[in-house]
């Protein structure tokens, strides 16, 4: 008994404190991902394969690769996230978790943020870790690699948040995949533009603080807005 802080005692026992709800969701996400490591590995493999296609399809000459490299890596990351985001809320929808979230005393945006943050670590973490390898395949100068990783670090959560909106909107549909890409890809364009511009500046040894701050502001905006939109979308699919 003495383990519980006194404030919680006054509430009913079922009521979770916000931080413990957050932690339990994150824990659950990670244990689920641990049980199905395909969820972690497949996006990375997809990422590698897509990047491999470009030298084969365009030209393997080092100069061309250097020119298109940052853009190719970014497009591959973008597609990989779009695919991995497709299953984000599917299980929760079919197992009735969404109704439970809506009924619980914990605010919906908090639950969504917990889910998104753990999904980001699970599905995008490996992309960032593997990006230097791809940078070498695409003949990108070693000096640019930190900028590449930084751009992915800031940019991938934005892509994940936007993609999650698309997934929340289409989760109740049987074949939401193509529709998801139709909805989500146009919204990805600003991120792609600023991320590749950041890398372009880095590759000519210019300061890329400006582009990075734009990306950061997009991150903040999506962090604030996406959970609201996702909450409304999930509520709509359940009703």
């Amino acid at each position: 008994m003495s383990k519980h802080p006194p404030q919680q005692e006054s509430h009913s026992n079922i009521q979770l404190s916000y931080s413990s709800a957050f932690k339990s969701i994150v824990k659950r996400e990670f244990s689920l991902a641990w049980q199905k490591p395909a969820q972690i590995i497949q996006p990375v493999v997809f990422f590698l394969i897509v990047v491999t296609l470009f030298p084969l399809g365009i030209s393997p000459s080092p100069k061309t690769l250097q020119l298109i490299g940052p853009g190719v890596i970014w497009i591959a990351a973008l597609l990989s996230i779009m695919l991995s985001v497709e299953g984000l809320f599917r299980q929760d929808f079919h197992e009735g978790h969404i109704e439970a979230w809506l009924l619980s005393t914990v605010p919906m945006p908090l639950i969504i943020i917990a889910k998104l943050l753990s999904a980001w670590v699970i599905s995008c973490g490996m992309l960032i870790v593997f990006s230097p390898l791809l940078a070498m395949l695409m003949n990108i100068a070693p000096e640019v690699i930190p900028a590449l990783m930084l751009s992915l670090l800031i940019g991938t959560p934005i892509l994940l948040f936007i993609g999650a909106i698309g997934n929340a909107l289409t989760v109740s549909l049987n074949q939401g995949g193509v529709l998801l890409s139709l909805i989500v890809l146009p919204l990805y364009i600003p991120v792609l533009i600023f991320a590749t511009a950041m890398l372009e500046a880095a590759s000519v040894n210019m300061s890329y603080v400006g582009q990075m701050s734009v990306l950061l502001s997009l991150l903040l905006l999506s962090f604030v807005m996406a959970p609201l939109a996702i909450g409304a979308a999930l509520k709509n699919t359940v009703n």
């Binding site: 289409t170 109740s172 919204l187 364009i189 600023f194 511009a197 807005m225 409304a232």
Partner: peptide
Amino acid sequence: TGARAASILAIVGVINVPIIHYSVEWW
């Protein structure tokens, strides 16, 4: 449900329209 989902997407889109516009212009 379709109307509501489309509404949410329209709102998300209209927040993005100026961002897209300026990013493309700058690009």
